[in-house]
Design a protein around this nucleic acid. Structure first.
Lengths: 297, 297
DNA sequence: CGGCACCCACAACCGACGGTTATGCCATCT
DNA sequence: AGATGGCATAACCGTCGGTTGTGGGTGCCG
């Protein structure tokens, strides 16, 4: 099975036509046509049935689709990896963090770092945990910052700071004098809430604890990011449970209270085990840790 | 990144030399040499350092190794899949089962089926669960028989028979009259046992329950298959917990007792959701179910 | 219905790439 | 020193992947 056939098959299935595939691969349409015939020849069964001048994938072709999509993905990943290996590591600091942390914490740390190392080039990405893991493994970035546990995948991680889940509410929801008092989770019973659908350990933990409250809080709106939850809460959509960074950093007018049942959240730096952190990188993490701790103090 | 480069890289790393790789790929050594240079050219960094006339993989090359091995595996799988798709389905019955079930149960069913359908060609493989899953997905076999839960992976499964874990011992271990009496798990405390290291749900379950016994059973020998455990037990190595099929079917002289704490084991048939079972296949499963039930009665 | 746009297949042609054989150099081993 | 094994280079060649050009079929419009 030639790789060319795989690419072509993939291109035809994603564009829907042979000419489209040819354009995608930057070859002429007859070349694609010939290659497709060769592929079918080679395989011993037709991949597409020519019906009314169009290509329609065969049953057998569809059986191979998942496999071929995977291979294309792998090839693409390898491409990324190899270019990142080839690129001279002139960038001493490439950071990827979750959207939550990109709100204020990481920009603050980067700004401060820029003053100390004015000539250092810095790259900052925001990604969710799966993409972050890929980015690190494929050497597109060197440090990941997340609230998730990522000790799987063969990555090293280092705890920077501990905090705990907070409850946020529209302004005026609680009397001012109660804001420092931890809120028992039972107080959420029957309350209108913004649900978090994010598929990570923290989301599951929240979900589990909320499920025990009786009567269950009423969540009509479900969102994927903590930041969105903030915006909705500020507009009176109800309460929400969010990580402490989002709670502190949000620009929205919000009330924030700790939860009595302390649900820990840890800010972690993640990096590859084979490349120890250089001076700029460790300094950066120092700043992040410092800012985080002062933020949660 | 040409596929040829990937194959070559893989071949060099697995044979250790360029000429070896060339032989593996059925090309001449100069061709391999040129291709390798092209690959390094294309990537922008050397894959091997030529030291004293030999090739030594670079640090960068080793970074790509896992990825490339995966891709080669995927390509190989695709190859298998496509040939199995191409092959006209002249084999109405291709079965794969675990070694345990291949002992007597499956051969019995096949023998009986052969009398009813004397002209049917039958293929029988024995594989462990991961390989079984692959074999089914790649259409090398049509039905899998296992004691594992394989509802993941998008496969359908059908329960054929239920049994429970048994304790086996060397002959004369227990008085004859006790053999029907269920043994409480606490009776295993401090006993010499054969450990099972098989990495499946059942193995974990056994491990979990044994961990609770105080004092813990003494397992000096660990084996990977239930059959091996039988052999060792028969030779006086101690007790063991095994699935009921192994317990009943073993040719070794053994004593078998049920466990008081009933740990269920289910015999399952697994198959692809897209290809419903034909007549021969359902008949075969009927026989397996029948034999299994009579065996465990 | 004619015109048009789109899509696929076939033919003829060409350059580059993947392969070959032959040879030389270097290191290691006896 | 000679033999052996491994890699690189050179010269050569056929095939394969690409091109342009063309034709036929289908569907959509005026």
């Amino acid at each position: 099975m030639r790789l060319r056939y795989i690419e072509l098959f993939h291109a035809v299935l994603s564009t829907g036509s042979l000419t489209g595939a040819a354009n995608l691969l930057n070859i002429s349409q007859p070349a694609a046509s010939k290659a497709l015939q060769q592929a079918e020849n080679h395989l011993g069964f037709p991949l597409f049935s020519r019906v009314r001048g169009r290509l329609q994938p065969t049953q057998q072709a569809l059986l191979m689709r998942h496999h071929i999509d995977r291979i294309m993905q792998e090839m693409y990943d390898l491409q990324r990896l190899s270019t990142n290996i080839a690129r001279p590591e002139s960038h001493p600091l490439r950071v990827t963090c979750t959207p939550t942390l990109a709100q204020t914490l990481v920009p603050d740390a980067i700004a401060r770092l820029g003053k100390v190392y004015p000539d250092t080039s810095i790259e900052l990405y925001t990604q969710h945990s799966a993409a972050m893991c890929e980015s690190l493994m494929l050497r597109e970035s060197d440090i990941g910052l997340t609230l998730q546990d990522m000790s799987r995948h063969g990555l090293l991680q280092q705890s920077l700071c501990d905090g705990s889940i907070m409850v946020i509410a529209p302004p005026g929801w609680w009397p001012e004098r109660d804001l420092a008092k931890p809120l028992p989770i039972s107080a959420l019973a029957g309350q209108p809430m913004i649900g978090i659908t994010v598929q990570d350990a923290m989301g599951n933990m929240l979900h589990g604890h909320l499920a025990e409250v009786e009567p269950a809080p009423r969540a009509h709106v479900w969102v994927q990011t903590y930041q969105l939850a903030c915006s909705l809460v500020a507009r009176g959509g109800g309460l929400a449970l969010v990580d402490p960074f989002t709670a502190r950093c949000s620009k929205e007018p919000l009330q924030t209270r700790p939860l009595k049942l302390q649900l820990d959240v840890t800010l972690r730096a993640v990096y590859r085990p084979d490349s120890p952190l250089n001076g700029v990188q460790t300094r950066f993490l120092d700043y992040v840790r410092e800012f985080a701790q002062s933020l949660l103090a």
